[in-house]
Every structure is written in C-alpha cells, then in structure tokens.
C-alpha cells in the first residue's frame, strides 16, 4: 500500500547523543529510519522529553546527527533548511514585529516582492482566523492566537514540509481541542506534508494519517500505526477508542 506514495523525506539511521552530567555520552535518538510520504499527516508520538525534539531539530537541520542522514527530495540536509516550515513549541514569535510582519518574515528575508507575500500572508491570516489582528504585537495576543500566528507564518513561507513541534503543548485543554480542529480545517483547505509532534495520544489520533510511536529516552521507533479512520474523527468512535487503548497500553511511562 505504501508503494503508491511518493517519499518526500527520507531519514536513514540517524543517531544523536549528548554528554550527561558525568561527562559520558548518552543517546537521545537511537538509529531511527523513517520515510515521510507526500501529503501525509505524520504524527510522532512519544512520552515527554523522549528525544522527539532532538529528532525534529535534526530533520529541520538545526542540529547535526552523529550518524545517518536526512534527505529531502533527494537533497541531504546539512544546515537549517527553510524549506521546512517550523511551528515552534514556544511559538517563537518575534516580539518586536506585528502579526503581519512576523508572518511575512520568511518571504521578506528571501527578498520576495511585497505585493505577492502580503497577499499570501493575508490568505493564511484569514484562514487561521486572525483577520483584524494584523497590526497587533504578540504580547497583545492570547496563547492560542500566538500559535495561530506561528502556523500562518510557517504556511506563508511555503515550505515543502511543515513541522509542528508540540504546538499546542502550552495551551489549556479547551483551547487545545479547538486548535486541533482548526489545524484539521486548514489541512483540508491547504494540503501539505506535515510532521506533527505530540505526547498526547488523543491529539495524535485526531490528526494523524500515520502515527509513529517512540520509546522513552533514547527515542527509538516502537510501533507504527496506520489510522484508517475518515476525518473529521469522532473521539467516541469505536475504532478510535480501540486504537487509543492499544497505543496507550503500548506507550512507555515518562518518569
């Protein structure tokens, strides 16, 4: 079944270790190989601090793997790669820029024409529901709105692959739930390849076409789940609940 998909991102045998308190090197990511297919919503699920973020940073090119390589559309990634659109866990909005200027930061740095990128930015601002807030500064926004800006910024940069690093981790449960639905709406309107990291099983099941379950530190692939439930998904659906139970029982405890 996987044969009919085009592989966009190929992660082969990457490992990364860091020195611990005693000065010995400790593995954070252990020999992970993974293909990301065109247009899929891939969820990386693992207990908190299991090394997912390290893996993500290597995919984005912000960190170099000790071993193995990451290849995007046939090109090896060796430095920070803006072709990956990153939605940061801590939003990473630049406080000195307005919503509009934050969102158009990428195209501006690239030297795109203002008319083109402003139009595109406005489309995504409208899509994430921030119309009317273009001139606000980040400090004037709530947590959920900030992450909307983060998402619009990533889309406006027109990435080949979108990476979302626990984007809703800092939000309260209610906001988180509505943001998940929001993301689903956006994905429906503007299909892209997405890698979404979370430690929340329900969130993974709500959004993912495929879920990669990781072990606790160091991160290794424990199991891969194909979620063949049509979207939008019902959290009370039988298959949903069964999968949820199965993943839950299979998840390592984060201590």
């Amino acid at each position: 079944m996987e044969q009919k998909y085009l592989t966009r991102l190929k992660i082969s045998n990457i490992s990364k270790s860091f020195p611990n308190k005693e000065g010995k090197r400790e593995l954070a990511v252990d020999n992970i190989s993974l293909d990301v297919y065109d247009g899929e919503f891939l969820v990386l699920l693992g207990p908190g601090r299991c090394g997912k973020s390290v893996l993500l940073n290597m995919i984005a090119g912000l960190m170099k793997p000790d071993e193995g390589k990451v290849v995007l559309d046939g090109e090896e990634i060796t430095k920070p790669n803006p072709q990956m659109g990153m939605v940061f866990q801590k939003t990473g909005l630049l406080p000195w820029l307005t919503v509009m200027d934050n969102i158009t930061f990428g195209p501006r740095q690239r030297g795109e024409s203002k008319k083109i990128y402003t139009e595109r930015a406005q489309k995504y601002i409208d899509m994430v529901g921030l119309t009317g807030f273009e001139k606000s500064y980040p400090y004037q926004l709530s947590g959920g709105m900030k992450q909307r800006v983060g998402i619009a910024r990533a889309y406006t940069n027109e990435p080949k692959i979108l990476i979302m690093d626990e984007p809703f981790g800092a939000l309260d449960a209610q906001t988180r739930y509505s943001m998940e639905q929001e993301v689903q709406n956006i994905v429906e309107k503007d299909r892209r390849t997405i890698i979404f990291v979370t430690n929340n099983i329900e969130e993974a099941l709500m959004l993912g076409d495929r879920i990669i379950l990781f072990t606790n530190y160091p991160a290794r692939i424990k199991k891969i789940y194909d979620v063949n439930i049509s979207k939008p998904r019902d959290t009370m659906d039988r298959t949903f609940l069964m999968l949820r139970k199965e993943i839950s029982e299979n998840t390592d405890l984060a201590l």
């Binding site: 984005a60 912000l62 920070p80 790669n81 803006p82 990956m84 659109g85 990153m86 940061f88 801590k90 990473g92 630049l94 930061f105 990428g106 195209p107 740095q109 690239r110 910024r153 940069n157």
Partner: peptide, 13 residues
Amino acid sequence: PLYLDVGKMFNAS
C-alpha cells in the same frame, strides 16, 4: 537561542 532558530528556519541565511 529560539529567536536565532526562528531566523534560520525563516530564510535569514
């Protein structure tokens, strides 16, 4: 360092 990462991921090369 987050701001620097943001810069690098958004074309400030």
